[in-house]
């Protein structure tokens, strides 16, 4: 009986708890790290724990966390979306421009933002899933195309705060029970997608596709449709992030969101999403965004120059993937040992 590899403790079908433990560990680790950074900084500068400062922490992380939701869905399928920053910029400007010149109603600002993102996500999804072009190339190209279109529309102008309705910017600066609206909205979205990624069949398919694309095809998973949907959702959320960006900053030129793409990927990877697909959670990605932002603000609060923040973010990203690697190597080795020890004939 060489196949009956007995796990030392008899396998109990306690699937849920096992899975939760596995899923939790990474998120708990990051959460603990966030708390640690927070406490250390607070010890140094008590102002860091003030409500206003915490609000800033949450607000600052929100947009990257929101972009991270879509990015996670895409990366889990073994793809990448580099166009999120440009999409955010275009969406924000289009909405701002419509406020300024067409005086559209406040609610429609969000709808239009989402529509802009939806359009770009659809283009991405079509070229990647239907024409089967590598996503890195497509979304890199779209990064330029969208940013360029943005610049054409902007034409050197800036939308100023006085053009944006107050009701719209309220989302960016008002809070509910002390928690900024922006953070509440993003948290709800993260929670929804976090649940969906765990419990909806079509989303489990995303993990299967990223884990083994060929097998996914054979298992009858409509890989093309799923990947297409992932890019559409990533675009859609980027568009929404654009509207929220505008409500937060209340002004926009042609550079909104530039460079975000790499920040988002960094946050997602720090949050435990495997860059080659197959594993990782939306909640982890969001926590990754919060961690990077907390470090950022902590540097400012500790009066260490904020010039340090980028270097630390980079070092942290490298440390995160190196730690993952060490962990998986150790697991593999112990698995091998156990298999060697418990193999019976």
């Amino acid at each position: 009986m060489t196949t009956a590899v007995q796990q030392p403790p008899a396998p109990t079908p306690a699937a849920e708890s096992r899975w939760l433990v596995a899923a939790r560990s990474r998120e708990l680790g990051i959460a603990a790290l966030i708390v640690l950074v927070f406490l250390v900084t607070t010890a140094y500068n008590h102002d860091f724990a003030r409500p206003h400062s915490i609000q800033q922490l949450l607000t600052g992380a929100s947009l990257i966390a929101l972009l991270g939701v879509g990015e996670t869905m895409v990366i889990v399928t073994r793809n990448v979306d580099l166009s999120v920053g440009s999409t955010l910029g275009l969406s924000a400007y289009v909405v701002g421009d419509l406020f300024k010149h067409q005086h559209i109603p406040v609610w429609s600002g969000f709808v239009i933002g989402v529509l802009v993102g939806l359009l770009i996500g659809t283009v991405n999804g079509f070229v990647i899933a239907v024409l089967r072009v590598p996503s890195l190339v497509v979304t890199l190209a779209m990064l330029y195309v969208v940013r360029g279109i943005d610049s054409l529309i902007v034409n050197g102008q800036t939308i100023d705060p006085d053009a944006i309705p107050n009701a719209f910017t309220a989302v960016g600066y008002k809070d509910v029970l002390g928690i900024p609206w922006l953070a509440v909205i993003v948290a709800l979205i993260v929670a929804f997608f976090g649940y969906a990624m765990r419990s909806f069949r079509s989303n489990r398919d995303l993990y299967a596709i990223g884990s083994n694309p060929a097998a996914a095809e054979l298992a009858g998973i409509p890989a093309g449709r799923r990947v297409f949907t992932a890019f559409v959702i990533s675009g859609l959320l980027s568009g929404l992030a654009g509207a929220l960006f505008l409500s937060l900053h209340a002004q926009i030129d042609n550079s909104g969101g530039s460079g975000y793409e790499l920040n988002v990927v960094a946050a997602v990877v720090v949050g435990g999403v495997a860059i080659f697909g197959g594993s990782g959670t939306v909640v982890g990605a969001a926590l990754g965004a919060v961690l990077l932002n907390t470090i950022d603000q902590a540097l400012v609060a500790s009066r260490i120059s904020s010039f340090w923040s980028e270097a630390i973010a980079g070092g942290l990203l490298i440390a995160a993937i190196a730690a993952d690697r060490a962990l998986s190597l150790r697991t593999a080795r112990s698995l091998r040992r156990r298999e060697g020890a418990h193999r019976e004939l």
Binding site: F307, W308, L317, I318, I321, R325
Partner: peptide, 29 residues
């Protein structure tokens, strides 16, 4: 990190992208 440790290059170099730029920032401000 890429060749010896075997980490995915896209993730490693996004990290060093931030790291190198960050060090430059620390140096010159």
């Amino acid at each position: 990190l890429v060749a010896k440790v075997g980490l995915p290059s896209i993730a490693v170099t996004i990290g060093s992208l931030a790291l190198f730029r960050g060090i430059a920032e620390i140096m010159l401000g």
